[in-house]
Design a protein around this nucleic acid. Sequence first.
DNA 1: CGAGCTGTTAACAT
DNA 2: AATGTTAACAGCTC
Length: 274
Amino acid sequence: MPELPEVETVRRSLKRLVGGKTIRDVDVFVPKMVRNLDVSKFRQHIENKTIIDISRIGKYLLFHLEDWILVSHLRMEGRYFIKHLDEAKDKHEHLIFYFTDGTTMRYHDTRKFGTFDLIKQENLSSFEPVQKMGPEPFDQEMTVDYLYPILKRKTIAIKSALLDQHIIAGLGNIYVNEVLFLCGLHPETPSHKCRKKDVKNIIKYSQEVLEEAIKRGGTTIRSYTSSLGVTGRFQQQLKVHTKEVCPTCESPIEKIKVGGRGTYYCKKCQKKRY
DNA sequence: CGAGCTGTTAACAT
DNA sequence: AATGTTAACAGCTC
């Protein structure tokens, strides 16, 4: 699923479903998904901890377990399900958290790309992925004065720059395609060719697209089953991603690769800049 | 059957 | 240092 709106949707659902519950135990079936600790330590620290809160930074989901924080990244296909203790384990459930009330929270990930880190609360700000992450489109620091100079000194495609979480956090392949369409920017435009006006648009439309997507529970494209009963509806609003005809000018939508990622754009509305 | 595709990130090579 | 490529993995489509 997950770009920022999908992670935010999961956060809200999980907070409602498991906030306040106490974890009796956790089973880790794929040890290497836990990046920063031995599984034995991981289990030991999580045991008997209560989920005080669930927050989000960029695409990272943070379970606040008293003095520890469980940092979860869903990568390509991570999902959570809440099931009763008795239900059989699915082939792709790689972590199972057992609550004291007989329910369980299961991390499901067909490709096993997802990651877990368990850190002390006081170390959150020094935790590398968080420390190196750029501001989200909504953050106060996300201004033209911040973003323009960064884009100015890079020669990479604007699409690649906007996918770089160190520059701006939260956009993934789908929403970048949408944002660039709304900005009228060709995805291969060298980053340094963006003018201040373009950067202003990038910020504005990133906010608009992400906000609207959160409102609609994210985008569901390839996942057939919904996790937590969450099926996004933003796919109905997509203007270029997976589309064949431009909603503005009715030209055919082009599909190319930029930085190895499938890229959709309108040749007429998103002119290449030389 | 194989090849190529998929919402991400980081390690690696150049 | 910055940028491009590949790997981690599984399943679906052609």
